[in-house]
Design a protein around this nucleic acid. Sequence first.
DNA 1: GGCTAATCGAGACGGTACGTCGCGTCTTGCC
DNA 2: GGCAAGACGCGACGTACCGTCTCGATTAGCC
Lengths: 212, 212, 212, 212
Amino acid sequence: MTGTEIGNTGPEPAAGGTRAARGRPRSAAADRAIVEAVLRLMERGVGVDALSMEGIAREAGVGKATVYRRWPGKDVLLLDVMRTLDEPPAEVRGESVRDDLVEFLERLRQRGLAKRNSALLRAMVSHFHSHPWLWREYHDTVIRARRELLHSVLRRGMARGEIRADLDVELLGELFVGPMLSRAMLREGAELPEGLAERIVDCVLEGARPRE
Amino acid sequence: MTGTEIGNTGPEPAAGGTRAARGRPRSAAADRAIVEAVLRLMERGVGVDALSMEGIAREAGVGKATVYRRWPGKDVLLLDVMRTLDEPPAEVRGESVRDDLVEFLERLRQRGLAKRNSALLRAMVSHFHSHPWLWREYHDTVIRARRELLHSVLRRGMARGEIRADLDVELLGELFVGPMLSRAMLREGAELPEGLAERIVDCVLEGARPRE
Amino acid sequence: MTGTEIGNTGPEPAAGGTRAARGRPRSAAADRAIVEAVLRLMERGVGVDALSMEGIAREAGVGKATVYRRWPGKDVLLLDVMRTLDEPPAEVRGESVRDDLVEFLERLRQRGLAKRNSALLRAMVSHFHSHPWLWREYHDTVIRARRELLHSVLRRGMARGEIRADLDVELLGELFVGPMLSRAMLREGAELPEGLAERIVDCVLEGARPRE
Amino acid sequence: MTGTEIGNTGPEPAAGGTRAARGRPRSAAADRAIVEAVLRLMERGVGVDALSMEGIAREAGVGKATVYRRWPGKDVLLLDVMRTLDEPPAEVRGESVRDDLVEFLERLRQRGLAKRNSALLRAMVSHFHSHPWLWREYHDTVIRARRELLHSVLRRGMARGEIRADLDVELLGELFVGPMLSRAMLREGAELPEGLAERIVDCVLEGARPRE
DNA sequence: GGCTAATCGAGACGGTACGTCGCGTCTTGCC
DNA sequence: GGCAAGACGCGACGTACCGTCTCGATTAGCC
């Protein structure tokens, strides 16, 4: 697993890298069948931790070896499934930084942290600590783009004077995103409520201390 | 699993609840041996998901049945181990609300999200969605007390005029805690850096928008 | 387990033998409850090898220790159950040795090798080799009396000239009994057919070689 | 378990019977390793009822699943071990029927009822009643051939006039075999004594009643 | 009437084996 | 060489019994 560019989605390429392909080429159909099997199982309510490589292969109508040939383990397979679901973040350029931030968080609420995605995320969280490269992969291919978009919004705000220029952009970004993430991961079945994005943005912008 | 009071730490009581105990009573030594076996294994670097009920029983010098008699599964056992590690939140009453908040977060950084605790937490996150009662137990016995302490600090601040009275206390609490939690759960090996508490508090208090 | 006299039926006496009884005496009700539990379970079709000390105690409404206090294991308990079912062999004294032998075998067919008894016997057969004292117990309390009755019949026949006097009584006894036993133990569900006793007796008496 | 022909020795074939084999074929080495493990354990004095599938797999250096894939349980495995030990009965054609019978029984004494075989047999006896197919398998693959050999000997004797023609061949066969079987199964450690075959044969042939 | 002591039902104890499932690898024949 | 199938050694799962032990509560005989 080497890809670091955004959008590097898909199963492990065949051994040998760019060496001329020999023998029968990998079946693209199998690639698809596997990822779709995962999604189908999850949709059927199978629960991320009840997923087994064995069950996935069975559901996909594929040999186990065919799965292992592409992904070294469940974690990485799930990571790729997340990438499949992922869509690159759309530009946001509203009338004000506040509007941009609200739109950004709102999109996070609806897409990124929707049921399927958050289940996958929660399932992988336990491995990030012990498998740093897994986190790095996740960061590089799913998080980075959004993060940079957020940072650019914030920097634009600073430039325009809508946001204090003395703040650490990275920390500030986490102030907006953290509350949503922690809710999505910890809280039981709760969907993130409508209006949450707005309330967070306003609160962080205005501050908790009264302005005289 | 019925306890809702803070500090209700310990293994599942024998069926029948308060009914007069019959038969040989559960061995308190076994209770301890099991929990300590888990801690010992984790200290030895065994990784939360590499823990097995089988291995725990072996390490504790205890029959598997003795573990299952007390806890229905690994999740719940780990929850109780967390409770064991937990210590009730100390009062904070500094000179200002800001000081209180910083101290609160700083303590969270050092204790609650220290290595062992955060590993346990991350391991359980994936089950909270599908096992709501597990979350509720965790919330009731670990989170609630700190949460209420935080809320009381915030309310005191509102009363004193140090914090805007028009804000939702719950949301505001999450603005402080969320960034720390999300870092602790997502980021790879990173310890939470010193000074993080202060920076978060100041930023949320002052707001991201410039004060003229 | 010391008793060698016929009819020594019942559970192991309390340790200490004839020493003056001290403490609470063994409950005769428990003795009965246990043996009856075994019979009840077998009648319910539980299959001798599916019997467990645990299940027997449960069925008898008795603590496991109460069973083990009386019998050292399942084998010996079953042996005692067999003794319970056993009834001392009735005298046979018909008009001829042939009649006596037929009656003897017929009684064996109907009682001794009836369903319950043969199931118990088959269950114990596998232990006789490795636990010689178990065989000896069984022999002394169940077999010996019948065996001696049979031998006395045969000897009477020899005295009367109805049976060759040059034969080994013991071997001859086995010629009569063996075919029935081996059928009862080996053959699947088959009840021993009516008339079997007569046919065996006549055949062994007359011999397989034609008499000119 | 379908084989009914004599000599159908070996583990359960893969499901699907004669359907074209798919996937990795069963390892013949594992087949052997398992059966040999059983024999080795028994030779080591492990006692048929102390055998466990777990221990067998361990001794064979094989996964438990590999055993269960071939045999549904200990009984059936032991049955196949018996088949392994079995050797087809050799023709007997001595100068007289008496010689043939003596040779037949003598061979039974030495081979079939030798230590290992009779331990296995005794262990299975308890299951024959409740698992009729087990008996049928045993009968079809181990007993039948010898039985038919014995019957042919007897019929030859009848044809030659050495044996009464008015007797039931089957019953007569049991008169010869039963005494030996019952001794082998019931009697404690006793080896079957030399000369037993001759004594049984002569006695059954001549009859117990004096010939004038 | 109190004391001593063995027994009672109940059920926990450390173990071992059960039969199943999933792991990640290996081995077929076919494509 | 990829592919579906499926066996391989391994090890954990959660359950059932094993035979022993520890509870509080009986239930006797003896002082």
